[in-house]
Computed example of a mutant assay.
Amino acid sequence: MANLDEYYRWYPVYTLPRAEKKTAENLKKRGIQVYLPLQKTLRQWSDRKKWIEEPLFKSYLFVYLSNKEYDQVVQTHGIVRFIYFSGEIAYIPDKQIQMLQNYLNGQAEPEITFDQLEKGQKVKIISGKLKGYEAELVSWKQQQRVILRLDALGQSLILNINASDIIPANL
């Protein structure tokens, strides 16, 4: 049986406000594997517009570590605390981190319409970069979108998925 101190998982950590990028760099300098999901957004200033990369989840980033590295993370400048769920340090399954990475690396965001699926219904993604993942369908202003949850963060990620790429999860 493997030693639990050597078992690596992805953990969400809470950072100081607007310090996600600097904190990620501080962790990398300590040899900690970090994932900071970023999204490009167009920012307007009084004299110009510019595309910038902003964190997808404000004040959160993900660290890949074992139990024996907790202290090293908490002692890093910019880290506020680990996220807890039901009294224990929360972790994110590898599959969800991979899904998030795959989605953010993709280019296409097609609008979709469903006739046979209903709001709240669980669906399974059957092709594309997110193949094999399950999600919940939600309705949003006459459009249908797939929502994938990162439960440990208490946040949800709304994704546009091609209608031909999903089926009801019970099939």
Rank of each mutant, 00 (worst) to 15 (best):
Q96L: 15
I92Q: 06
E54V: 01
G132E: 02
E53M: 03
L171I: 10
H77T: 14
N3W: 04
I167W: 02
K68L: 12
D5G: 13
D94L: 08
L61P: 00
S127P: 04
I167D: 04
I161K: 09
I112A: 15
K122M: 06
Q96Y: 09
T76K: 02
V74F: 06
I161A: 05
A19K: 13
R149P: 06
K122C: 07
Q44E: 13
L100Y: 03
E69W: 03
E20Q: 11
T113Y: 11
P17G: 05
N160Q: 12
I161C: 07
Y70M: 11
Q101H: 05
S156T: 13
Q116T: 12
K141F: 13
G154R: 02
G31S: 07
K68T: 07
E6R: 09
I79G: 01
L157V: 00
K131T: 14
K22P: 07
G87W: 03
D115C: 06
Q33H: 12
Y103G: 07
V123F: 04
T23W: 00
Q33D: 12
V13S: 08
Q39H: 10
V138S: 13
L56Y: 00
N102T: 02
R30F: 07
I161F: 04
R18A: 14
Q144N: 12
Y8G: 05
L27T: 07
K50H: 04
Y64E: 05
A152W: 03
L130V: 06
T113F: 12
P37M: 07
I161Q: 11
D5I: 08
I83S: 02
I126H: 02
E53Y: 08
A19V: 04
S156P: 03
A90F: 01
K95G: 10
S46K: 13
Q98G: 07
I158F: 10
L104W: 09
Q143Y: 08
Y133F: 13
S156V: 11
I161N: 09
F82K: 00
L157F: 06
W140Y: 15
F85Q: 14
L130Y: 00
G106S: 15
G154F: 03
M1I: 08
L130D: 00
V63E: 01
I147K: 15
I52N: 05
S127Y: 09
K131E: 14
S156F: 09
E118C: 06
S46Q: 15
I97V: 10
I79C: 01
N170K: 09
T113V: 15
E6Q: 08
D5R: 09
M99P: 00
L137A: 03
R48M: 09
I112Q: 14
S66E: 13
P55F: 06
K124I: 13
Q155V: 12
N105A: 15
V63W: 02
P12V: 01
Q44T: 11
Y8R: 08
T113D: 10
Y91H: 09
V63H: 01
K40V: 10
V63C: 02
L104S: 04
I126E: 14
D71Y: 12
L130K: 01
I83E: 02
V80T: 05
P168K: 06
